[in-house]
Design a protein around this nucleic acid. Structure first.
Lengths: 346, 346
DNA sequence: GTTAGCACTCTTGAAAGCTGAGTGCTAACA
DNA sequence: TGTTAGCACTCAGCTTTCAAGAGTGCTAAC
């Protein structure tokens, strides 16, 4: 049995769509004229009264129109949006030649997304944790400094300086390089366990302390960035929506965007949520970030084979254009998959 | 001869200090009570009338108190601030152990600065342009990809992937590495001219196209980032100051912060301005960025020997606490000098 | 079940009035 | 001649009032 009959659904749909457009409470008369139901405003009023009782819409104050409640939005997102199977288009012009520079691609993407939707876009670099090491090299930069360079499957490059007590001779360096490469190649960060490390150290002999340093550096390189690598764009777009732009809320939100750490919880939530291929919608209080209780957040997860994945998110007012946003995310997601696929070098 | 006698200076000083505190126009009566001049409000009024005529202060509207004009601020900054010779203190707690990760140090610094001052802080990575190449290495990552790693004097590391048609054998690679290192070592980006390039290519023989690629990559690496490497923090602090927080202005400013490109002109201005060791103050219209005509910007330039330098900036309302800001910048500047000095490896 | 009509409520914006802070001017004072 | 007291005047900003408009709920008729 359905809680809402056909007519109620139509009316709810009309209310929400109208509210998405205008941001103003919508009255019975508007619906009566706007929709194709051919009902008088009085009838609509009765239905609206029912819908309110059921919790789908609410009145900001007596004798104002109605606005959708969180439950209303939820119903809309789940049931009323027509899935468009839009082909991958647009945004192609934003695709970049220099796919080597991951940060730039991502920043660019975020920008395009923000511009396209008029909301705030965020996008995280693919998680390195599960990414596999493909190439590793130690070089003597000067007397007291080694440089470790690590290249992973997706052609992501990390580097780290290591201070040493004294310079190593060429031969030792070569040996270490071979050792490291042969031992670590193909492993992901969370696959490098104590056993591997012990074996590695043993083989390194008197240079085991250097191996230690390298591993530390490696762990550090993988981890340190994890926090920072969130790209945002269009943060100021929220100022365009009166319901978010009062000093108090705007400030909190913008802060959350600046302190990218806060966004990480969003990402984690998205990554851990069951349906990994799909698109996640958080309405109001559903969001894992408290500051965003007046917003809606839509996230998508993109993948680069082998469990390496990142998150794209759009943050906007609750009355965001969910259809458009979800569409955009979907196409971007597939594009990202493509880019990294191609880049993966086959 | 001085335009302002002692008493006028004192009064102007009192007006400005008061206004910095409150942000409200300040009246004659306030000054009469507040200052140690022991003059009646009427006398102050006469003096204020003079000061207004001279252009140091102005009335937002008849029968409001006076506020400082840009000229007033300028006079204040140039003449009325007492230079404190504060020793390098505070902020030390913010100094970081992992000095290898430049971005993090800078980001951290910006954060500390913003927190300390309650304004917006920006800080740029040292300019790579004049930085000298110290170490350079090509590695074969897989069949079709070379990785170029470049380390500069300040131990800043850049890397770039280069696609090749086919893999190079070890010997060739070694030769190329030696060639590149011996040719480019000690040169800064703007010292690598056509002659150098021609010579290099000649020596590379049949692999001249790879040299081309490397040089392109090198130029790219130096340049591409130039745009991005501006770190900001406390952008939302501007919302704390009513004179900047109305939707229109706030939006423009925040945009400027997000589009870090705009900030580059600020940096360039600061770098090119004559007095390189000192601190630069731009009041209102003096700022090179149009959007910031309602703000003041204070910048400092830090150096890492050999002409390599970066910029720190604070952006706030015109009524910012110049003394505190300049102080902060001064200490930070010296700290940065220290950090990079130490890191330079001697 | 649907519609028309009506009384009622409540936001919003404009207009009007009041208040307080601050000024400029004049006249008295040292 | 410089300083002060006093007074009338101005004006931003707050508060109050008022009218208009939008929307609702209810009742009665279709």
């Amino acid at each position: 049995m359905q809680e809402l009959d056909e007519r109620k659904r139509k009316i709810l749909n009309a209310i929400i769509r109208n509210y998405l457009d205008t941001g103003e409470p919508v009255g019975s008369r508007t619906i009566s004229k706007y929709s194709d139901l051919n009902l008088s405003s009085a009838t609509i009023r009765n239905e609206m009264s029912d819908l309110e009782e059921l919790g789908y819409i609410l009145q900001p104050h007596t004798s104002a129109g109605r606005i959708p409640s969180d439950k209303g939005y939820r119903f809309y997102v789940d049931n009323l949006i027509v899935e468009k199977d839009r082909e991958v288009t647009e945004m192609k012009e934003f695709m970049i030649e220099h796919t080597e520079r991951v940060e730039q691609v991502l920043q660019q993407m975020a920008k395009a997304l923000a511009a396209n939707t008029n909301y705030t876009a965020m996008i995280t670099a693919p998680s390195y944790q599960r990414n596999k090491v493909k190439f590793l090299q130690l070089s003597q930069v000067d007397e007291e400094q080694l440089l470790a360079v690590i290249v992973t499957e997706g052609n992501l490059v990390k580097n780290k300086m290591i201070s040493t007590r004294e310079a190593l001779d060429n031969e030792t360096l070569l040996k270490l390089n071979i050792l490291l490469n042969s031992s670590l190649n193909g492993l992901s960060a969370d696959q490098i366990n104590l056993a591997t490390i012990a074996r590695l150290k043993e083989q390194a002999g008197i240079h085991s302390n250097i191996v230690s340093d390298v591993l530390d550096a490696l762990a550090g390189a993988f981890q340190e960035d994890e926090e920072l690598e969130v790209y945002t764009s269009g943060t100021t777009n929220i100022l365009k929506y009166p319901e978010l732009s009062d000093s108090q809320k705007a400030s909190e939100l913008l802060n959350a965007f600046e302190e990218k750490k806060q966004l990480v919880s969003l990402v984690n939530e998205a990554l851990s949520s069951g349906e990994q291929t799909g698109i996640q919608v958080y309405i109001g209080d559903e969001s894992p970030i408290q500051n965003m209780k007046d917003c809606s957040v839509v996230t998508a997860t993109y993948q680069i084979g082998e469990g390496m994945q990142g998150t794209i998110g759009i943050i906007g007012p609750k009355r965001m254009d969910y259809e458009n946003v979800m569409d955009n995310l979907k196409t971007l997601k597939s594009q990202l998959d493509l880019v990294f696929q191609k880049n993966k070098g086959e």
